[in-house]
Design a protein around this nucleic acid. Sequence first.
DNA 1: CTGAAAGCGCTTACAG
DNA 2: CTGAAAGCGCTTACAG
Lengths: 347, 347
Amino acid sequence: MAAPTLKDVALRAGVSVRTVSNVVNDYVYVADDTRARVQAAIDELGYRPNLLARNLKLGRTKMLALVVPELDVPYFAELARLIIHEARTAGYTVLIDQTDGDERRERELVTEDARGVNFDGVIASPLSLTEEALEGRRASAPVVLLGERLFAAGVDHVAIDNVRAAREATEYLFSLGRRRIAAIGVQHESTGTAKLRTIGFRGAFAAAGAVVDEDLLVEVGHYHREDGAAAMARLLDLPEPPDAVFCFSDLLALGAQRVALARGLSVPEDLAVIGFDDIEDGRYATPTLTTISPDKAVIARSAVRQLIARIDAADEAAEPAQSVQIEAPYRLVVRESTQGRISTGGS
Amino acid sequence: MAAPTLKDVALRAGVSVRTVSNVVNDYVYVADDTRARVQAAIDELGYRPNLLARNLKLGRTKMLALVVPELDVPYFAELARLIIHEARTAGYTVLIDQTDGDERRERELVTEDARGVNFDGVIASPLSLTEEALEGRRASAPVVLLGERLFAAGVDHVAIDNVRAAREATEYLFSLGRRRIAAIGVQHESTGTAKLRTIGFRGAFAAAGAVVDEDLLVEVGHYHREDGAAAMARLLDLPEPPDAVFCFSDLLALGAQRVALARGLSVPEDLAVIGFDDIEDGRYATPTLTTISPDKAVIARSAVRQLIARIDAADEAAEPAQSVQIEAPYRLVVRESTQGRISTGGS
DNA sequence: CTGAAAGCGCTTACAG
DNA sequence: CTGAAAGCGCTTACAG
């Protein structure tokens, strides 16, 4: 009843465990007849190698940890899907650590010593990780960070140019003739994405020679639909409501759009809405959502490959190489929420 | 540079590894001063137990595998979030296996011998697993299945009563006075959810003394937005289009609704739409989506607890207990897509 | 091409 | 309450 071991197979095939191991691991120098005999024993016994023992011996697990704040945020779910796919292609399984945005857990997972642990490396999309936390990091498992750019931290990153993307989104709204342009998603506490996108937003105003009405910059606790909804409600209660809004995530945009529509506004006629992330949701909303679309496939692929390269490099005990900053492409995807209208006519 | 081991700590504290292990594992019978001395050594060395070694020794990993077709389908993402949360509460980490609906992979993960593997148990939400596959299963790791009911298979299940839920949804449409009621989501190949919901749908017709117009039953390849959109387009091209549609998932419903709106129909005036799953998406769509809402928290909690109970029972080597069928509650959530309208007026 | 043997770092039955 | 020692099931340097 106990699972057959390498030793059981060796006994049955009349060879040493060494040879069985060689067969199991497709080692080349095994005589054909030996291999056949061993394979027969394996099949008869239904032998399957014990991964736990292999892990201990080799010191690696062929598992990657993916650290995300919330798996049910579509952007993370879509990214997770791609990352799992890439990892699988490379022979790795993904273990998900959901932090719920808890900074302490993010920090632990990314900065703590991770030797002898169940994964070989970490891909993390931190919400609130500070540069200081990263400076003091003593993790032995390689880490690749997603979606932020905390320079000087000596950690590999994959991200789009958030400043430029945000500026493009805002400039596009200017180009439509909008003048009272709001932004939803500012976070003063943030060291990351929110700050960069705010800089881009302001940059577009500067370039247009326009002045930012600070009342139109709305801070949010999270990047969820409900935060977008609450923010929009506040904006619409202003004496002079906006005629366009740039939301720092598609979820914020969908929440904002919902409130605008529910209050009887026409989108885009009365209010142009643009989001960020290009989640599938926005492609089926009515109106469909204009958005900044980061190339998630490139982000996932780059992150997995870079991480695995680090893992392999660690095996060869080379000196720690320079940290790498990978810039993924993005594009502005124009849909109905800023330009078209659905065929129902209206207004 | 090498990570400190139990032995290093023992040497430094002047005790045996046994004692260090006792301290690390909070074994009660350790003298206070011994404990203090060992703890000091642990802190000085920065010792952290090697999980890989512990796994091998104990034969378990405190990891659960979650097998889902696609992580970026919101229903699975929301469920995954809850499952990860529950697992964490119980001291388990979750490893995600994404099958892309590939039946072979589903089968392998659920039915193969899983001794000496990186997880202690499996929660699976199979798309195409057949009863036969389950009959022949020789997995040693416990399995809990989600969302289907393949009786007689001797595997634990957690599911809502899909037949009753589907009938209720359909009866509700009848109660609104709708008569040409379509269904999107039929799958003739399916052994699971789709079949059960179809039965419920037909049951409502039977109860109402109405005849199902087979042209209004639309089969789909997947339960995605695009499938719902394509199905709706077909229905609207019918000489006598439906006045209501029951979609077997919210994604199908959102796709269907999008097409209806884009063609200038009013929802719910011209077409009532009801979905299944209650994903957050539907709560912010315009109009908001009426749906069957399975209690995902209960599903996640029941699944994790049942699985862990099996894992613990296996430790005690009791005889394999009867399989358990856990029925989770659900409710019909009525929103704008079947009754209200947004304040913009219209029609 | 293959064998005998060490060792990865833990946990724990057995003594005391 | 603690020690000395075996063993979980692999991989692999060392010989031959």
